[in-house]
């Protein structure tokens, strides 16, 4: 069952990228569908990673909200980094902190790590089980709970609904 869900989602993703590459022409669509089916059959022995995605109306709504939250954080982080780079004294206060995540699925953790890297002043250095080690350009709280609250929980509440 999980394999089937993974295969269908992989096929749909491949087809969407194929349509973005080419145009909506019958011949090209046929070739793309054949190639996608071959790729799905070739990778059927691998781990069904994509089956962690939940497909109900709430999770689809949350993924759209998540996209906007993410874009807002991305622009905020860039303005933040820009100020730090331009100001002559380089106001940095760096350190590596440890945070804990509640997400279980590998895909959800990968998304969380990428989102952390692209948001204000944080960079994922290492993932060990449920702990992330994060390089923080401006350390404001030294213990695990405080760091988790200010770095992770903003995204986690959306990703928890989407990936479970």
């Amino acid at each position: 069952m999980r394999k089937l869900k993974h295969s269908i989602l992989l096929f749909l993703t491949l087809m969407i990228f194929w349509i973005l590459f080419t145009s909506l022409d019958v011949q090209e669509l046929t070739i793309g569908a054949i190639a996608s089916i071959i790729i799905v059959l070739m990778t059927i022995g691998l781990k069904p990673v994509l089956s962690a995605i939940k497909l109900n109306p709430k999770s689809i709504l949350f993924s759209i909200i998540y996209l906007f939250v993410f874009l807002k954080e991305l622009i905020k982080s860039n303005i933040d980094v820009a100020f730090r780079v331009i100001s002559p004294k380089l106001p940095i206060n760096p350190g590596i902190v440890k945070v804990k995540t509640k997400l279980k699925s590998p895909l959800g953790r990968a998304f969380l790590a990428n989102s952390i890297t692209l948001t204000p002043g944080t960079l994922t250095v290492e993932m060990r089980d449920e702990y992330f080690y994060i390089h923080w350009i401006d350390v404001t709280s030294e213990n695990i709970e405080g760091a988790t609250k200010s770095i992770v929980s903003n995204f986690e509440k959306y990703l928890e609904v989407i990936f479970g």
Partner: peptide, 16 residues
């Protein structure tokens, strides 16, 4: 160019 160590350089390099 300006940041003092490799991790801070990565911060600026990736996001911007």
């Amino acid at each position: 160019f300006r940041m003092p160590d490799v991790y801070n350089r990565m911060q600026a390099g990736t996001k911007a």
